[in-house]
């Protein structure tokens, strides 16, 4: 409430062109949300985002689990993971355009490259942090490799995997907007550049607010999932 009041006051002083007040953004948002173009933009954006994120999770989690479980695999893979981690992901966008052209596939690739590495390194960290005394205990009671994985390593790594998913979601949302801004003319990114270019700042803010809200809802869902899967230990991390 305090934040919203401050926003309202600041907006009225600075002026709607640069910094519209909360009430103006709200009016713009209500108008937007009833327009079919806006709904279509949300659908287009999310198509790339959801597919890209799911692919990132489907590839990143197994890779992280494998390289975290077997130190040799980790030593082989980690230099590459480090390179990926350090590469400014935005700089890959021209490459994707060259390979995939401008379209859904290309946008999925951008979202994937934004989210993948964070999902993978978190899953790996979770595996590595498995308590050695629990592994020893399971050995003592005769656990086979598959039992070690399902009963010790996987539950141990689960909170870290979920933390990776949460970071991955926020990165996927960022990747979605970046792809649309740099590849031009689709989804919410198109609306952002259009409203920005035509100085409809209240609509620009409303679009951004929509993206933030969606991101928060997804994070909340991820946390709900984490509470169900790993109620014994809810990881702390970015929200």
């Amino acid at each position: 409430m305090i934040l919203l009041s401050a926003w309202e006051i600041a907006g009225r002083r600075v002026g709607a062109l640069i910094f519209p007040a909360f009430s103006q953004v709200l009016v713009a948002w209500v108008k937007l949300s009833s327009s079919p173009e806006f709904l279509k933009a949300i659908y287009l954006s999310n198509e790339a985002m959801v597919i890209g994120f799911l692919l990132a999770a489907a590839a990143g989690i197994p890779l992280g689990l494998f390289t975290g479980r077997f130190p040799l695999a980790g030593r082989v893979a980690n230099p590459y993971l480090d390179i990926f981690l350090m590469t400014p992901t935005v700089s890959l966008v021209p490459l994707f355009i060259m390979i995939f052209g401008v379209g859904l596939v290309s946008r999925i690739a951008v979202v994937f490259s934004f989210a993948f590495i964070f999902v993978a390194v978190n899953a790996q960290a979770g595996m590595k942090a498995t308590e050695p005394s629990l592994v020893e205990m399971a050995h003592s009671f005769g656990a086979r490799e598959s039992q070690l994985f399902t009963r010790i390593y996987l539950p141990s790594a689960l909170p870290a995997i979920m933390a990776g998913i949460r970071i991955g979601i926020s990165r996927a949302v960022a990747g979605m907007v970046v792809a649309e801004l740099l590849m031009g003319a689709v989804g919410l990114g198109e609306l952002i550049s259009f409203y920005g270019g035509s100085f409809k700042t209240d609509y620009l803010f409303a679009t951004i607010a929509t993206i933030v809200c969606e991101g928060l809802i997804l994070l909340h869902l991820a946390q709900r999932l984490e509470l169900r899967l790993a109620p014994w230990k809810v990881s702390e991390g970015i929200e």
């Binding site: 205990m137 005769g142 656990a143 014994w232």
Partner: peptide
Amino acid sequence: RGMVFQNFALLPWVDVIANVGFGLELR
């Protein structure tokens, strides 16, 4: 052989029943 560990080595993600039954479950 059955071992009792100095640091207990209990599974934090399951209850007492599942912890006590862990050795049998593995078998």
